[in-house]
Design a protein around this nucleic acid. Structure first.
Lengths: 107, 107
DNA sequence: CAACATACCTCGCCTGTCAAGGTATATTTT
DNA sequence: AAAATATACCTTGACAGGCGAGGTATGTTG
């Protein structure tokens, strides 16, 4: 991993929501997907992931259900709710604004 | 202020260094300048500012000296060191990479 | 003379990250 | 068959940065 977590801090929830908007998924898979998407430049650590799930669920942005695996370990799937969809749009706008501001300040 | 602090977190030191690279300055002024530069969309809170100064000085990225004001309150000026200049370049590269990664993940 | 602006600074809480640990099942290697 | 690895879940507690709230001192303005 080459990116320090403090810079990514605060984006975890948006990253998860974005990923779940593509399709429902589960913790272990999301962790692997993020690494793959970023070619190992960024890893969303498991502990970070699960604490974000908790916040997202409490906020009503995601809901969960158990997969019906007949083989292998059980999987807890996550799905974005309607409120989550809206929250994602808001996160995204915030990111665009933050990007502009930081770019302005780091000249 | 419209940008949440968690998104800006971790950029404080880079923002300060960038500002000081333009010219030496002091706490109160930097605080005002950042607000002006961002048209009040972002405020670097004083407590945040001073704790960042401490870290930057401890890291050897800035040095300080007292202004020679004959009127008004005394001012503690900050100046970027050579190491600070290098650190800034590093922060900047990190920011560019983080930007790419987040843009990739928030589709 | 009260209020506000300039200028400095500290303390302690809050929150997100994550190392380290744990559980259980399935597959692959020795 | 035992050991190692991979898949999958989860919690605890430490740590660090941000910042609200508070403090000090001087100068200016209504």
């Amino acid at each position: 991993m080459s990116i320090t977590s403090d810079i990514l801090r605060g984006h975890t929830e948006a990253i998860i929501l974005s990923h779940l908007l593509e399709q429902d998924s589960y913790g272990y898979q999301i962790n692997k997907d993020i690494m793959k998407k970023t070619e190992n430049r960024y890893e969303l650590k498991e502990a970070t992931l699960y604490s974000a799930f908790k916040r997202l669920e409490q906020a009503g942005y995601i809901r969960t259900y158990w997969g019906d695996e007949t083989v292998g370990a059980r999987r807890r799937y996550y799905a974005v709710t309607e409120n989550g969809r809206k929250a994602y749009q808001s996160y995204k706008r915030e990111w665009e604004e933050a990007k502009t501001i930081i770019d302005q300040l780091l000249k």
